[in-house]
Structure formats: C-alpha cells, structure tokens
Design a protein around this nucleic acid. Structure first.
Lengths: 180, 180
DNA sequence: CTCATATACGGAGAGGCTCTCCGGTTGTCT
DNA sequence: AGACAACCGGAGAGCCTCTCCGTATATGAG
C-alpha cells in the first residue's frame, strides 16, 4: 500500500468516525469525503460499501470488547456475562450503525469476532448454571442489538436487565424456551 | 374531500401496501407513485411524510390488534398478555416499517392506540401477579419492536419468549429491575 | 538523481430519490 | 351551463450513491 493511500485511508476513517457520531450511521458518504477533502472516488475505492467503512471505524472498539471478554476470567461467570453484555449494549448504542451492520450481514468479520468473545462467556456461565438452558449466543446478540436500535439511550440498560431477568414472574422456572 | 381525491387516496394506500410488502418500509415513494399511475405531487399532498403513508397502510391492522386486546378478557391475564405480544411481534415483523415508525415518533396516533391496548393487558396481568414488579408498557413495546427489527423472522418468537421468561437462571426472583 | 511504471487521486456525470411549485384540469354547487 | 374551488401532473432543484477515466504522484530500478 502506497504511503499516500495509507494516509488517505486513515484520514477517512477518522473523519467518518466524527461524521457518524454526529449524524448517525446513515450519514452521507459524500459528506465524509467532502470533509476529508477527498474525492468520492477515493472514498469508494477504499471502502466499497458503507459497511466496510463502518467496520473500519469501529474495529478498534470491537477489539477492545473482545479483550474485555477475555480479561473477565476472574469474575463469577454470571456477572462476567451480564457485565459484558452491558458493555456491548453501550457500544451498540453509541455506534448505532454497528448494530445495523451486525444484523444486516451475518457472515461478517466483526460479527464473528464478537460472537467468539460472547461464546466463551456464555459457555462459562452455562457450566456455572447461571444461564437458562437452551440460550444461544445469537439470542443474546439479537436482544442487545434490538434494544440498542429501538430503545432510547437512557432506557437501554433497564431493558437489557429486564430481558435477562425476565418479564414474567411465574415462580419456578420452566426448563427452557421450549416453544422455539 | 372530492371524489377523485378519495379515489387517489385509496388507490395510493393499496399500492403502497403492495410495494412496502415487496421492498420493505424504505421503498422508494417515487415507485409507489409510479405504480399507482399518479404524479409525485399527488402522493406527497396526501401523505406529507413517509410516516403518514405507513400509518395509512397499517391502520387497519393496528385496529385489529386493539380489538384483539379487548376481546381477550376471558383468558388468564398472563396468557392474554403474552399472546397479544406475540401477535404484536408478528405484526411488527410483517410490517417492518411500523416498528421503525413506533420507534421514530413517540407522539404518534397509532403508537398511542397500541400503547392503550397494551396498558389494559399489562394492568390486568400486574394485578394477577403474573408480571414482575416495575414492568412498564414501554418496556414491552421496545422489546418487541427491537426483536422485530433485528432478529430473523423465524427467531422472533423464540426471542420474545426468552425475554419474557428471562435469560438468567438465578433461582428466586429479585424484586425488580432496580438498577433502572 | 532520473526515469518508468504501477498505483492512487479527483471530480465530472449518470441515474435515482425526495420534495416543491404552479399551470392546467376536473369535480361540484348554484 | 358557468364559475369557483379543489385537485392533478410533472418539471425541476438539490442531494445522494457509485463509476469511470484522464491526470498526478510515489517508488524501485538503473
């Protein structure tokens, strides 16, 4: 990769981060190019799709989340899982586009990495008996991203807790979500 | 309202219903006008915003949901609530746009009507002790619409049940989502 | 240092979308 | 029938996405 290309690439990512933060994930890519003082062609050559740009922008944060999952080996399994899911929620809320991205394209690199991180935590929690039987990683992701997309920011955490602890109150738990 | 205006209005709603069903809620409004053999001006005069058109399209179904809520007075409170939420989920999945609509504009007519319908069910379930303390109507809506937006259609029901019954398995329930 | 060449850049432009405006048309009421 | 209000259509402004290609530049070889 040529030096000027690298420069443009980095500058575009930084600019896009700012623009997405201001205007949300559906912000105009033209605007990104304009602010980065770069032609549209340059932007689209580096990032053929909006997704590609989104991923580049959030990659760092995603990796931090993965690292967080690995570090939380000391905490009790259940708390480690819920704590991480809360971090994931905050992330998905901040970078609304990522939630959409994860939902849109299941065969995604960043999606796979997050799934991997979550799998470890869920397995551990499962072995500790802290999680209802039959819960899958995808369940957790879809709940978190769904909450991030529709709920106002200040209600996200409340909703996550509700989903984790359950809405219904019918005493002893049934074996699992058997209707699925 | 003049007769030709009424004709155009109805025809636009019918066309829009078909187009939205085919291409999702972000379908081109131009396309709707074109298929309805009507100028763009006509469409935008009748429906100033995309929301307005979406609401017109789904109004019938929304009213059916409200009626359903009122009819289910005979069933046990808990089952009535979960059954209705399932119907709401199916609806939100089918008419993806509605989910977005409900999330986008809180001061909405159709939103208010659904909230009203749900409030009745939730109150009854609350009095019967079938619902965890502190659960609000908005919680339920945001969970359902979130699930509808992000989860694949065939996993929606599974996720709703999971959210209602809870992901965690830590025996006796805590008093409520106190962290909120 | 110079040159050749692959590599990358910029921006014009095609095609589509949203939304507005207004001259012409068509219901409706007397 | 005639007049007036209501309504329609579509041209067009402004924006967006994405492509294409002539031009400029970084870089390795000589």
């Amino acid at each position: 990769m040529r030096a000027d290309a690298r420069r443009n690439y980095d500058h575009l990512v930084a600019t896009a981060r700012a623009v997405f933060a201001e205007e949300g994930p559906q912000a105009s890519l033209n605007e990104v190019a304009r602010r980065a003082k770069v032609g549209p062609g340059t932007l689209y050559r580096h990032f053929p799709t909006r997704q590609a740009l989104l991923v580049a922008v959030f990659r760092e944060r995603i990796e931090r989340l993965c690292a967080l999952a690995e570090q939380s080996g000391s905490a009790p399994a259940g708390e480690a899982l819920t704590g991480w899911l809360r971090a994931l929620l905050v992330h998905a809320q901040t970078d609304g586009g990522l939630a959409a991205g994860m939902a849109d394209d299941p065969g995604f690199d960043c999606h796979a990495r997050l799934i991997g991180a979550a799998t470890g935590l869920l397995d551990r929690a499962g072995q500790a008996g802290a999680v209802r039987d039959g819960v899958e990683v995808e369940d957790l992701f879809q709940l978190v991203t769904g909450i991030a997309m529709t709920a106002p920011k200040d209600r996200g955490e409340r909703l996550l807790m509700l989903a984790l602890e359950g809405v219904l109150a019918d005493g002893p738990r049934r074996p699992g979500p058997s209707r699925a």
